[in-house]
Design a protein around this nucleic acid. Sequence first.
DNA 1: CGGATCGTTGATCAACTTCAACGGTCGTGG
DNA 2: CCACGACCGTTGAAGTTGATCAACGATCCG
Lengths: 196, 196
Amino acid sequence: MSGHSLLIASIEKHLSLNTQEQHRILLAFTTQYIKKKEFFLRAGEVCKQVAFVLNGCMRSYAVDEQGFEHNLQFAPEGWWITDMNSIIHGTAARLNIDAIEDTQALLLSRDQQEGLLKEVPKLERFFRIISEKSMAGSHKRLIDQVSVNAQTRYLNFCDQYPGLIQRLPQKQIASYIGVTPEFLSKIKAELLRRKD
Amino acid sequence: MSGHSLLIASIEKHLSLNTQEQHRILLAFTTQYIKKKEFFLRAGEVCKQVAFVLNGCMRSYAVDEQGFEHNLQFAPEGWWITDMNSIIHGTAARLNIDAIEDTQALLLSRDQQEGLLKEVPKLERFFRIISEKSMAGSHKRLIDQVSVNAQTRYLNFCDQYPGLIQRLPQKQIASYIGVTPEFLSKIKAELLRRKD
DNA sequence: CGGATCGTTGATCAACTTCAACGGTCGTGG
DNA sequence: CCACGACCGTTGAAGTTGATCAACGATCCG
């Protein structure tokens, strides 16, 4: 129940809900526990639902032809995660989503979402706003990726997600900023050397 | 008027509108002509509106510390373009948006949009859907950027935007796929050599 | 305790950039 | 209508950034 209130609070940052609406919303979600290294979505499946993380942490990533993983997003508590391409086009997911820590999440299927939006139309607004935010974040990242070098990307990451740095294995961060774990190690060594 | 119907048609792909609603929508927009090389938005300003392109083509791009441009998006007719980070957070734009061809666009300010959404709430749904699509496209691009080499990115671009290739100067495409114009030239030469 | 996974370091390698030079085309002013 | 400059695409040589491969010590967890 404390977890559910995280979802409600998150929505109420953007609009207010009466008790009835809150109950209707929670009805649309199901709870799922995902252990570290277990999958929420595998590439090739069609993604049917979006996840709202209550605690723990998930990540989404693509695997290239040579088998290397590339992290697209981390989702600690309070974040949403899904394969948007798969869910809106109904195509095979290109992303894998798994748990980096033992995770508890609320799941919302597209069907449930449709029903929910019909009964509580003002939620359209909420989902519009988080989509816009997500799009803005994604744009920011894309610009970062092409316009600054790896060291700066690492520093930017430290800046933007101070909480995640201590929590995540370094190789996960390397995969996110788009370098090999070896090279991130060298970046950190270089930064330490320059700090003296 | 033929231009306006492009907007209406674009919305009606996702929901249906009666004549009254159509008129109310068009009321919220203003028309603007932007000549080739003129700016719709300059980095540093706060972005106040989104543009829907009727004809011509605009692009958004960031400029890095060394003065190099990095194209984020092209917007030919039927596409929306804005600096989402600036518009939703009210912060200084990091993007420039200018016209690559003489362009006619419909502009919608955030204030007008708010008013419009109040009177025609079902448009929340439309804006949610296009945000989701935009986010999906952005994710796709991000994965592409980090998981395949420049030659493949070029081929993917040709695939996805066959219409734009003939229309755009090569250096604009180079900037989009994230390489120097010189290197794109070499990629094309290599592809021609292998085709024989 | 033992195996697996992690982070580190160094040597070599590949992808892409930088810089410089050249020919072609386009648009503009005379 | 021509001439000029600006911008574009191309090519080649040399330079950087980050990847790859291999080896090693540390830590974590079963």
